[in-house]
């Protein structure tokens, strides 16, 4: 019994100090050690040290799944705020925004609208970057942005999500000034710039959409010809096949 307890203590201490590094191979620690950890410490331990996830799997970009689970500062801070249920304080919000602003890389020669038709395909596609039991093959199919999962865009599309705000008429309401183009590019690249701790993925920062794809999505949002900026009656009959 005593021997058991001391092993447990050593294991817990090692985990807390980050001394044990290998992930899925090691047998899980005796749970008795868990009560000496904070909920956050235990969660980290369960992710990285106790075989909770297949961390050795490869990903589309040649990294390992392990890297997907390592949180950056924005993810860490925003997770804690969200969990606390409290409002983001101004100082932290400013810090998150500044961090986001630093990440933004503009296209050479400035921001210009791409092709709204390609943008629409990107907005409709949820393909890409999924790993695990079924791995998305980027060689056979280009990843999308999955905008419709969370946003309304084309007013004729009824299968739109509501986790994010409606973007129907986005360009019609805002116009296509250079300032609006830059503003929109920044939101797509790293939305935390203007909306610290937003739910929206950082498409440019993570490289899940290329610069060219970002400008195509911008065209879908801003181009006066785009279905996003038409009235409902004028675009009756949606010809684009849904490519979810």
């Amino acid at each position: 019994m005593n021997h058991h307890t001391s092993t447990v203590t050593v294991f817990a201490a090692a985990a807390l100090l980050g001394l044990t590094t290998s992930a899925t191979a090691a047998p899980p620690a005796p749970q008795a050690a868990y009560t000496s950890m904070s909920p956050e410490e235990l969660a980290e331990y369960l992710v990285f040290e106790a075989g909770g996830f297949d961390l050795d799997a490869t990903t589309q970009d040649g990294s390992t799944a392990l890297e997907r689970m390592i949180q950056d500062r924005t993810q860490k801070v925003c997770s804690a705020i969200n969990r606390s249920g409290e409002e983001l304080d101004r100082a932290t919000a400013a810090k998150i925004s500044a961090l986001a602003e630093e990440t933004i890389v503009f296209p050479e020669g400035g921001v210009a609208l791409g092709d709204w038709k390609r943008g629409e395909a990107i907005a409709r596609s949820g393909y890409g970057f999924r790993i695990g039991h079924r791995v998305d093959d980027h060689a056979s199919r280009t990843p999308g942005g999955n905008c419709y999962a969370c946003h309304q865009l084309d007013p004729n599309e009824i299968a739109y999500g509501t986790v994010g705000p409606s973007l129907t008429g986005y360009g019609r309401l805002r116009g296509t000034s250079d300032a609006m183009l830059n503003h929109t590019y920044k939101i797509l690249y790293n939305a935390h710039t203007f909306f610290p701790c937003t739910n929206m993925p950082r498409f440019g920062h993570h490289g899940t959409l290329t610069q060219e794809q970002l400008t195509d999505v911008m065209a879908y949002l801003l181009d006066p010809e785009s279905p996003v900026n038409q009235e409902v009656t004028e675009t009756a009959g949606n010809e684009q096949a849904s490519a979810d």
Partner: peptide
């Protein structure tokens, strides 16, 4: 610890379970 995991944002889309499951009536697509 499960609660911490539920709110833990990570990966290429910055998602956590809480992204989709802390509001009533929200939809993903339909």
């Amino acid at each position: 610890a499960g609660e911490a995991l539920f709110y833990r944002r990570a990966g290429t889309s910055d998602f956590s379970c809480a992204t989709c499951h802390t509001n009533t009536g929200n939809r993903i697509r339909a």
